[in-house]
């Protein structure tokens, strides 16, 4: 589904990714872990199409397409979804309006019929219940005045509504208390299926207690230094990252 080969990227003249390789197949869940400043969020942003990064080397294919030449909205319409670490507040833009515009933009791209307002609202309300969100958040402006937890739930709500093929979760667990974390994790687990893939970028192992990954990767210094199964996450939690760095340097 996603194939990243020898990716090098820089921002403001500074090399961030230095030869990153990653293969993700449909049905898989990957966790990318690593110390702060290792390039985890940069990777998520580059995959979603954020401007400001210079790709100096390497390639990324997604569903057989050259991902790096696609506009952010094309990536979204082809089924990619980034849950932001810091969801943006957009005063004046109604939450449900954005959801509906996004939903219909994606359906239109697939040549599917647009859902009318009543059916759409029913769909959204059902997903909101799963996320244990208050229905009043629908009529509010996008993320405006939402608590940290509400913002993260809102991201996962969008994901559940848009049903992406590839979900990228950027530090989705940060700033969540344990109850919110369980709700968010169950939302993500609900999306997992043989046709979809999930890539979680996270600093802590905590999220992985609730979402069991098939693969765990250590990203440090702009490269994947070590890959393994979920037991690697447990080891990282116990031993920290230093030993991986030392092993890679050796």
């Amino acid at each position: 589904m996603l194939s990243i080969k020898n990716l090098h990227a820089r921002v403001a003249g500074k090399d961030i990714l230095k030869g990153l390789d990653l293969e993700v197949q449909a049905g898989e869940t990957h966790a990318i872990m690593g110390p702060n400043g290792s390039g985890k969020s940069t990777l998520a942003h580059i995959l979603a199409g954020r401007e400001g990064y210079e790709i100096t080397h390497g390639s990324v294919t997604y569903l057989g397409m050259e991902l790096l030449t696609m506009a952010p909205e094309e990536r979204a319409r082809e089924g990619m979804f980034l849950a932001f670490q810091y969801p943006v507040e957009i005063p004046g833009v109604n939450n449900v309006y954005l959801l509906k515009a996004a939903y219909n933009a994606i359906r239109k791209h697939r040549g599917e019929e647009q859902l009318d307002a009543v059916d759409f609202l029913a769909l959204v309300k059902a997903k909101m219940q799963l996320m244990e969100m208050d229905a009043s958040l629908l009529s509010r402006a996008v993320n405006e005045g939402f608590s940290g937890g509400e913002k993260k739930r809102n991201e996962i709500l969008q994901m559940l509504v848009l049903e992406p093929k590839l979900a990228l979760l950027d530090e989705t667990d940060s700033g969540l208390d344990i109850d919110a974390l369980k709700v968010v994790a169950s939302g993500i687990n609900r999306l997992r299926s043989p046709e979809r893939a999930v890539v979680m970028v996270t600093h802590y192992q905590r999220l992985l207690d609730y979402i069991e990954p098939d693969f765990v990767h250590v990203l440090a210094g702009g490269r994947i230094l070590k890959s393994g199964d979920k037991s690697l996450a447990v080891e990282l939690e116990r031993r920290g990252y230093d030993w991986v760095l030392a092993e890679a340097a050796a």
Partner: peptide, 17 residues
Amino acid sequence: DEQALFYLRSRGLDPET
């Protein structure tokens, strides 16, 4: 706001919209 623009586009909205 460039961040807001990117956020909206990452949800599938074209730049004009």
